[in-house]
Nucleic acid binder design. Structure first.
Lengths: 156, 156
DNA sequence: TAGATTTCTTAATCTACATTAATGTATTTA
DNA sequence: TAAATACATTAATGTAGATTAAGAAATCTA
């Protein structure tokens, strides 16, 4: 249970790495993401204080996601092999978030996904640049920008 | 651990139901899905033999998903409260499938998602109508149909 | 604090996929 | 087995969001 400090932009895990770990976030903010063949980033999750950021692959397999720090952070690396540490409740919560995310991606428009995001994670909005919100929502920064101004106009 | 028989089209759970259960599939095929405000169905998962189909909400909360049978099936209902029955390995496997699904939905085209689906679940294809595959992929049946004929043409 | 870099916005054009509609073919069910 | 219903295909048209490009504002960094 060693706490370590990481600085903004520090990369903790790259796609393809073996023996990957989970990271419990004490303070700061991490993210996990993929990079597609066109070089575009797709954010899988944001991990603020209290969250565990991990790639859900066995430590024996090459991992799928990149993990880096969006803010200077204090984190606790956890070996994936230590199953006794697994917090089942957090696990179930996470799977619910993912279920919701899949449903949103399949059935909701970009505007609705944005509305949902800001009401679910209001604090994340202030801490990360817009293009990362866009990346999480599965749209381009340009689309998010115009969606926001449309939203503003329609509210006044 | 009582086995029960259900017939094709039988509904096991409706959105909003309380005290929802998990269903272990002995034989046959279940699915879970949502219906959006426009009345459109979005399939969350297919559950063939060996799979557990569940809505990842606490049994105290109204559930999010519908569950029904796509084939006559034999299933075992499991109380969600009995955490001792939870098969952690299956849990981790499921979460990985969801991670993959989110990444696919965010970064891959309809064609790529289809290719990925048929290579991952080749047996499901033969057992369900095309429009349900489309629903799982997050596209319309018409889009899937034309995507398939394009694929055929480009392979010859 | 000046220059570089990152971030955000706006607007024109493009494209993947949705929608609508028509037709044909299976599959149910009476 | 006839009629009804479910399913699949094709094509025309529409649209949400992508792409490209350019400029402005904010934030780093030397």
């Amino acid at each position: 249970m060693k706490k370590i400090k990481v600085v903004k932009k520090q990369i903790l895990q790259r796609k393809g790495d073996l023996y990957s770990k989970s990271y419990k976030v004490e303070s700061g903010l991490l993210r996990s993401y993929t990079i597609d063949e066109k070089g575009k980033e797709h954010i899988f999750m944001f991990g603020p204080e209290g969250w565990i950021v991990t790639d859900y692959v066995s430590p024996k397999e090459p991992c799928e996601l990149y993990i880096d720090a969006l803010e200077d952070s204090v984190i606790i690396p956890i070996e994936k092999t230590s199953t006794q540490d697994i917090d089942l409740k957090k696990f179930i919560k996470r799977i619910r978030v993912l279920q919701n995310r899949v449903i949103m991606l399949m059935s909701a428009s970009a505007v609705d996904r944005y509305e949902h995001f800001i009401s679910t994670y209001p604090n994340i909005i202030q801490r990360v640049p817009q293009h990362m919100i866009a990346s999480y929502l599965g749209i381009t920064p340009e689309a998010l920008s115009s969606l926001k101004s449309q939203r503003l106009r329609s509210k006044q």
